[in-house]
Design a binder for these strands. Structure first.
Lengths: 219, 219
DNA sequence: TAGTGTGAATGGATTCACAGCC
DNA sequence: GGCTGTGAATCCATTCACACTA
């Protein structure tokens, strides 16, 4: 099955399966079933099997799935069996936090550059171990070329996010994870993921309001 | 229409509509159409109209939508016409960044407490203006009661996230925004939103890999 | 003319149910 | 008995198309 025919929801769950399988491994589990994996994540067993079926045969009837194999294959599908070099634009509070986050590496992502145009931030060292020194935007193109960077994280104010995105695309970035609360316009060939904290809180606000209303009203 | 019958995707888009409408207002626009709003966000006009239709009549045929009215009504639907008090658990890199983020307030969320059990962090002042001093977990219950807090942000290591979530639910929290890379198990009555940075990057990784493969292969 | 609101039609995704395998 | 893989059936969401309104 061609990758662009696979339902986006299935790809999102694939990441969650991988995370859960890695946790199983840490618990010294080496085999699992669609039911067990689904239950851990809140999905049905049929959903789990169908999702894997998009990519081929993974399990053994009567037995289940061998977790090591499955992890390997899912990483390959997601493309994280190789390490991706990533740049981070914006070294404010959020950018610094992301630069310091120690969880990317083992997932296959390495931050190889942090950039900001604020002269109060350039030159700062953000991540003592990783040795990340904040550089100006003028250095972006060189770093992207040197490290073959295809992925960028945008953690700049909303007002300049589009401009930053345009620039990144112009130097060859193919995927952007955007933390600015704006909807970016980029070409069809560039992948964009959005994380808007306020949007997430609003979803919770809606759900809680709804729950409170239906509790107050006759069922 | 009852809130729990409304498609989750529609509610997610509602947040994006609101964000875009607020931007229109800043640009001194006071009227818009389903086509214009949809184009700004990458949705069809029919989608936009259908989404609003779940909640009643909003626009005027032949004219479009009056943005001020629409903003007011969408905020009411999302429940953010009132301010929500929020607590933040975990004052590490990410927690500090979230505490410092100045975007929540105008969206209707106010962080009224930051908690962490690391003695190196308790007592620290995170947000000079807001005057947020990190407290120990033992103070959570009091703050929740005092401020009528229903929403919490979890920014703690994965290993303790479930434990923290259980505790928060036990003191009355109804919604959790979880930044830890684990799937939380909570009762049906508690709303959970997840933000996993690695998961988002993996989605981009998959898309870029797919694009590169189809470019290499015969179309 | 420009644009909403909405039933009907389409298109996707999830769940069901079972044949086949360990 | 337990479990996968998968066509068929169901369910849900999006898009279409148009009656209606300003």
């Amino acid at each position: 099955m061609k990758p662009d025919e696979i339902p986006a929801p299935a790809v999102r769950r694939l990441s969650l399966y991988l995370r859960q399988l890695e946790e199983f491994l840490q618990q010294d589990k080496h085999t699992t079933s669609s039911r067990e994996l689904g239950e851990a994540l809140g999905f049905t067993d049929a959903q789990v099997r169908k999702d894997f079926a998009y990519f081929g045969q993974f399990g053994q009837p009567g037995i289940g799935y061998r977790i090591e194999d499955l992890v390997t294959r899912v990483r390959h599908i997601l493309g994280t069996d190789k390490t991706w070099n990533v740049i981070l634009v914006g070294a404010g509070h959020l950018g610094s936090a992301l630069a310091a986050y120690r969880g990317f590496e083992k997932k296959g992502f390495r931050i190889v550059g942090v950039f900001d145009n604020d002269p109060r931030l350039t030159g700062t060292v953000l991540n003592a171990e990783g040795g990340l020194r904040v550089a100006g935007m003028s250095d972006v193109a060189a770093v992207v070329r040197e490290h073959g960077v295809l992925l960028a994280i945008i953690a700049v104010p909303a007002a300049v996010a589009q401009e930053v995105a345009d620039f990144l695309v112009s130097v060859g970035i193919m995927g952007v994870l955007n933390f600015a609360p704006v909807s970016l316009n980029v070409g069809r060939e560039v992948a964009v993921g959005d994380v808007d904290l306020a949007v997430h809180l609003e979803q919770l606000s809606f759900q809680i309001s709804a729950a409170m209303n239906s509790a107050r009203l006759p069922g």
